[in-house]
Amino acid sequence: MSRRHFLRAAGGLAAGAALPAAAQSNRILPVQDIAPLIARITGGRPVEKRDVTVELPSLAENGNSVPLRIRVASPMSATDLVTDLHVFAERNPRPFVAAYHFGPVVARAQVDTRIRLAVEQRVLVIAALTGGRFLSGETHVVVTSAACIDEGI
């Protein structure tokens, strides 16, 4: 093989490998069905899509540590309060991220933490309120450097 041929072939390979990195990772980690996980929390009761704010950077540089703030518009009075928060990332290898259960001392329906995100995806939060009510909120995040997909899944 001549040097020219080799370079042409190598260049083509490199371009092919570099181009669809994001598209590839989305193909490796498809959306997982989190409906059974949600059903286990809600017991089939309806979930209203309101009042839950999921604050995430719209573009996360490092998927290994993405700051997350969850806020629920709730008076947190004795009769009307948020009792639980459940966090799901449906394109992570394991969609369950975390769950928080509030006792009576908790003053605000707010939690700050840092999470892992495998790829660009939707982060969903389900909030359980007193009286068997459920609210949800979600945010879409773009992840440039993904977590946990260096392994060929």
């Binding site: 290994n64 966090v87 992570n92 991220v97 928080y100 006792g103 933490t113 840092r114 999470i115």
Partner: peptide, 10 residues
């Protein structure tokens, strides 16, 4: 407060 974590926590 009580919390459960999965592998999705940093």
């Amino acid at each position: 407060l009580r919390a459960e974590f999965g592998s999705g926590v940093s």
